[in-house]
Nucleic acid binder design. Structure first.
Lengths: 251, 251
DNA sequence: CGGAACATTGACGATAATCAAAGCGAGTGG
DNA sequence: CCACTCGCTTTGATTATCGTCAATGTTCCG
């Protein structure tokens, strides 16, 4: 139940990187994490319709937000990398509208929404940081919308890989072009709006074009500039999202 | 520049319907609207990259948020019906990340973000209402994501029509199943991630199946229950989105 | 060793895009 | 009032992309 220091900091790091927090804010935020659990791969973290008194933050592993359709299909609407979280303030419904599932084995912290809410009222810095996080989440959703609507399978895949590479850089200190990708091809398919078979074929194409190496949950991007270009990937939406209160001279 | 009373209320109505406001909040909100402009169809309301000191609210007509791709394609990421607005608090970047275009002739109010921000600080009721609005906007984006990822052309179209019917009901007092649809087939295509030709063919199919009538910007849905069923449309995401502070006994 | 989940392959079909042309309709100017 | 545009819709023929089905490998783990 008690996570080690480094790991809890994934959540903190994620928030801090978006909006620098003063020390007091950081400790206050860190104190929010009281308990964490382990979930095996494909385990359900939050079920649709359940009340969300606590919201999940991913400390280790990868998870996803997803919608289930009546015919059994699912669409992943967002990937949660270490440090990411869901159902925080902006997603304001008291009942879960999306399912949260672990894609790999995960350590998940559950944070009281009430505690966070109180903290946001007391500490504008934290409120601001959460708003920035929400803005980035929103930006990512929009970019996915564009991908699903207007890019073909190979470009979608390339774009997602570029996004994940960039997001992993923000989280882990590691080789820039090589990271662990704990997703099955089926998971990728559900994120990209494709079938697993088609994802498989397009991955093979990326490999045979010498753009990536992918084996056993680990990907290496061999030609990142080319991959980015071919997907017209622009990382702007992942980084900066300055918030209202911090604008220079508004009006 | 001075809009008539009824029309300004579209914005107010939209916000009120999501979260009832006390009279003082309503007048304060109404006072935000100082100037409004008319934009002809296909006119640009906000350009990507421009600073957004004022955010646009649609008083009359239909507009869209959209992303432009390098190859000239575009993806509409959200439709703005009368009363809807963009770039409000939650979309917190000071520079427009999406283009706002008028799809029909529109009357647009530009509201100072600073004014809104101050009002939200003073008046929790308004802050709450804006959060609910943001949550609904988010929910809609998620549903679109599911449509683009997991529904075929005909179901996407049917689902969008159901959504629009439901949203129009909230705004206008009129025949429940018949409303003005000031979109070209090309606009529909950009919203649905399809080509105009394909939209045309699927619209014909809906017509020949006696599900809709569509001529000169006006649609009538002949069999709404069937249309909803065939798109597995559930309007829940458009209505209720109770917000953190208003939850019954959180913890 | 056996089993389960995941990855890969091939053949085939369905869905959607593309290209190019023709039709329609509302507004414009002669 | 009638051609004339222009933008939008409709049509047909063709191609590309992606899905489906079913079987075969592969890897990992108990």
């Amino acid at each position: 139940m008690t996570g080690d220091h480094a790991v809890e900091n994934q959540f903190l790091m994620r928030v801090c990187r978006l909006a620098p927090l003063e020390a007091a804010d950081q400790t206050a935020l860190k104190r929010l994490i009281r308990k964490s659990i382990t979930v095996e791969a494909r385990g359900v973290v939050c079920r649709v319709g359940e009340p969300v008194e606590f919201f999940p933050a991913v400390l280790e592993g990868w998870a996803a937000r997803c919608q289930l359709l009546s015919n059994g299909q699912r669409q992943i609407t967002g990937l949660l990398l270490p440090g990411d979280f869901a159902y925080s303030s902006r997603h304001a419904t008291p009942f879960a509208s999306e399912e949260i599932v672990a894609l790999s084995a995960c350590r998940i912290a559950f944070i009281s929404r009430r505690d966070l809410h109180e903290l946001m009222v007391e500490r504008p810095g934290i409120a601001n940081a959460m708003q920035v996080y929400a803005a980035v989440e929103y930006a990512i959703a929009n970019v996915w919308l564009v991908s699903l609507g207007r890019r073909n399978a190979i470009a979608r895949l390339a774009h997602l890989l570029c996004e994940l590479q960039h997001r992993m850089l923000q989280v882990e200190k590691q080789e820039p072009n090589s990271f662990s990708l704990p997703l099955t091809q089926s998971d990728l398919a559900d994120a990209l709006g494709l079938t697993p078979v088609h994802v498989n074929r397009k991955l093979q194409r990326l490999r045979q074009d010498n753009l990536i190496t992918l084996k056993s949950q680990s990907i290496e991007i061999l030609d990142l500039p080319f991959l980015k270009a071919s997907a017209s990937f622009d990382p702007g939406y992942l980084d900066h999202a300055p918030v209202v209160g911090r604008q220079p001279a508004l009006n």
